[in-house]
């Protein structure tokens, strides 16, 4: 380990994540209800990676997920009585898979009537019936269908052709045709292509170079050229790099130090960058990134599904990504 003075404050982060549900007298808690399902997925996955899956009650969590089922639209909302959306549906499926509780949903119904019905003639997916399109939603669909065991129902060529049309000359991908390359969209497109065994659509050297150039002198990675570094962008680059086996192309010691420096050493949690307010989103992506970087004591993360690797492996879904070897100290 480099001469970094900081360490990962696992106990503090576990306590922070556990405390998130105790803020019901806080305005912010209610103002973020539209993200609740995602937040639970982020919190649960971060806990799993830190080896503290049991810190949140399994039954309570599964009950919450099921209470967000929107029977009319067919799909999960972010919160009870919120509309179904592909983002929340993906998080719900990921949570259920992590808790080995996928038998609670009608898999075929979710796959066919919900997810596949959102595919547009162009091949991209919409987030819901209102029709916003984004390659993020293509990833959500591919990821969910794969976890549901229904990938064979998908028109792969049509799905891939839209992603291909979003590729830019820098090797990266945007959120729709014509859009600028963005690290988050690079992650979703590369991970979707990995699930579909279509990484031949990626210019590995050019994209690897673009991703490596995201690292800034302070060790953090940005999401686009000439922008600031950020823990979440660092993760999106890292996951794509591990899928392309290019993690050695950046300075991992410096990146580990950057992520650690964004921790709140007192209250727990990780922020977008040092000195900022923590949130569960950056806490999750910070810890997930550290796992890929081989940080000692963490559980392996699967960068394709962004879930614990052993779960994906047990389902027979592991793709050929490579993380850095787990460090001893």
């Amino acid at each position: 380990m480099a001469a970094s003075e900081t360490q990962l404050y696992v106990d503090k982060h576990v306590a922070y994540i556990k405390s998130l549900g105790d803020n019901k007298d806080d305005l912010t808690y209610h103002m973020t209800a539209h993200l609740r399902m995602n937040a639970i997925y982020w919190g649960l996955t971060a806990l799993c990676i830190m080896g503290h899956k049991e810190a949140l009650d399994r039954e309570e969590m599964i009950d919450f997920v099921m209470s967000c089922w929107d029977d009319e639209a067919g799909g999960f909302g972010a919160h009870p009585d919120h509309d179904a959306h592909l983002l929340a549906t993906t998080s719900a499926i990921q949570i259920l898979v992590t808790h080995d509780a996928l038998d609670r949903v009608d898999k075929a119904r979710v796959a066919r009537l919900v997810i596949l019905s959102l595919q547009q003639p162009s091949g991209v997916f919409a987030g819901d019936s209102f029709g916003e399109i984004d390659t993020r939603f293509s990833y959500c669909a591919v990821n969910s269908l794969s976890l549901l065991g229904c990938l064979s129902d998908l028109d792969v060529e049509k799905t891939v052709s839209y992603i291909r049309a979003c590729r830019n000359y820098d090797g990266g991908f945007g959120n729709c045709i014509g859009a600028e390359t963005h690290a988050g969209q690079v992650f979703v497109c590369v991970a979707a292509l990995a699930i579909l065994d279509r990484l031949d659509e990626v210019d590995h050297e050019t994209l690897g170079w673009w991703l490596a150039e995201r690292q800034l002198p302070n060790g953090g990675l940005n999401g686009r050229p000439e922008k600031l570094e950020d823990v979440c962008y660092s993760f999106w680059c890292l996951s794509a790099m591990s899928i392309l086996d290019k993690l050695s192309w950046i300075d991992s010691d410096k990146l580990i130090s950057f992520v650690l420096s964004a921790q709140d050493s007192e209250g727990g949690g990780i922020a977008d960058r040092p000195g900022d307010m923590v949130d569960v989103f950056h806490t999750h992506f910070g810890i997930a990134g550290l796992s890929l970087l081989g940080y000692p004591g963490l559980i392996d993360l699967d960068p394709v599904y962004c879930m614990p690797a052993h779960i994906i492996e047990a389902m027979g879904l592991r793709k050929g990504w490579k993380a850095l070897p787990r460090r001893k100290t």
């Binding site: 007192e266 977008d272 900022d276 307010m277 949130d279 989103f281």
Partner: peptide, 9 residues
């Protein structure tokens, strides 16, 4: 949350 400074309360 992006760019919100942390204050110790």
């Amino acid at each position: 949350m992006h760019g919100a400074r942390r204050t110790r309360q």
